[in-house]
Computed example of a mutant assay.
Amino acid sequence: MEIRTGELSNPHVIKLLKTHHNDMLKHSPVESVHALDVSKLTHPNITFYSLWIDNNLAGVGALKALNTTHGEIKSMRTSSNYFRQGIAAKLLTHIIEQATLRGYKKLSLETGTAEAFLPAQKLYAQFCFKECEPFGNYELDPYSLFMSKAL
């Protein structure tokens, strides 16, 4: 297993991010989908990670700096060939470690409320994320669930 920083020009990463975005659109209206495309993931305040097993893409995730003490998890997705193998937990662990190394005091995320998002909600709860009010530029939305964790 190898976690790489970047790789946003890799065709496997691009394909997985497109799949992720299209899947979000199946469960939420377009105005409630907050998944970032490749161009937005290249922003300087975002660090993108990809997890590889034997040079096969297993999952992706990103850490966005909201300010000097608050980070946001973005674009968490596991490749379908690696579902239920702990990939998301490994990426989430890495992102939490990176946020801690940066000195963040808080880590937040937005996920969906539809049944398809229950596995993600359960994962975040296992890592002690709790429901919270919208943060950053988010607003209350029946399709969004906001979660935060003190670091």
Rank of each mutant, 00 (worst) to 15 (best):
S79N: 15
V30K: 14
D54V: 02
V38Q: 10
S75H: 01
P11N: 07
L101M: 11
N56I: 09
M24P: 00
R84G: 04
N45C: 09
S39C: 02
A65D: 15
K105N: 13
F48A: 06
L91N: 04
S28I: 00
A58T: 05
S79D: 15
R77P: 00
T42Q: 15
L63P: 01
K26Q: 15
Y49G: 04
V60Y: 00
M76C: 10
Q85T: 10
L8M: 10
H34C: 14
P29C: 04
Q98W: 02
Y49E: 00
L63V: 00
A58Y: 08
G103Y: 08
L101F: 10
F83H: 14
E31D: 13
V60Q: 00
K18C: 01
D23H: 12
K40T: 07
T93K: 14
I53A: 06
E31C: 02
T19R: 13
V30R: 10
I46F: 03
L66W: 05
K64F: 03
S9I: 03
N56T: 13
E31K: 11
E97M: 09
T69Q: 11
S80A: 12
S75N: 15
T93N: 14
P44E: 12
R4E: 03
A88R: 01
L16P: 02
G103C: 05
L101Y: 10
E31T: 08
D23N: 14
I95K: 07
V38N: 06
T78N: 08
N81D: 15
R102N: 14
A58R: 02
F48C: 01
L107V: 10
S39E: 15
S79V: 03
N55F: 05
S75E: 01
A88Y: 08
L51P: 02
A99K: 10
I14D: 09
Y49V: 02
T100Y: 07
H70M: 05
S28K: 11
L41M: 14
K90F: 02
A58N: 05
N45E: 15
A88K: 03
K90I: 11
